[in-house]
């Protein structure tokens, strides 16, 4: 986060020194895009915070730990697809899962869907790519996550 702030500041100053007009135009363009996307993002985060409350981490852990093999992967993949958990919570959570004896492959499926598949972010994604393409991308990613699980089982 700090790194990003520093990089953006340096680029902003450099850009401003090189061309004032261009810089103002660019920053305005970017911020307008942000403001236009903001309502969709806020709705999404509101939904996430409700879901986060209804399915607390403890429930998530017990659900993922319940089954192993294909059933376990499917449960992990479904939960990963509908959750939107930031990395700083997700990885410690996975660490707990491993500690509870959940297979590495199941954890890999959970992480991969968490990262690549976003059921909750679908309305935002569809604004850019359209519904059909977004659903296809998410479905392919879901399948890929299961493949990750199968292969991880062979190697770990």
């Amino acid at each position: 986060m700090l790194e990003l702030t520093i990089i953006v500041c340096i680029l902003l100053v450099a850009s401003f020194l090189a061309d004032k007009k261009k810089t103002i135009k660019g920053v305005t363009l970017g911020l307008i895009m942000f403001v236009k996307l903001l309502p969709a993002l806020i709705s999404m985060l509101a939904l996430v915070s409700v879901l986060f409350f209804t399915i607390p981490n403890e429930t998530l852990i017990s659900l993922i730990g319940k089954d192993s093999g294909i059933n376990g992967w499917l449960i992990a993949a479904l939960l990963g697809s509908v959750s939107l958990i930031p990395g700083f919570i997700a990885f410690p959570l996975c660490n707990i899962l491993i500690g509870k004896g959940v297979a590495y492959s199941t954890v890999a499926v959970f992480i991969t869907t968490l990262m690549m598949v976003g059921a909750i972010t679908l309305p935002v994604e569809a604004k850019f790519f359209g519904w059909r393409v977004s659903i296809i991308r998410n479905t392919l990613s879901f399948i890929a996550a299961i493949v990750v699980g199968v292969l991880m089982m062979f190697f770990l």
């Binding site: 953006v8 902003l12 810089t23 660019g26 920053v27 363009l29 970017g30 895009m33």
Partner: peptide, 8 residues
Amino acid sequence: ILIGLFDV
């Protein structure tokens, strides 16, 4: 902001 700068 990064995207905007990238754009111009």
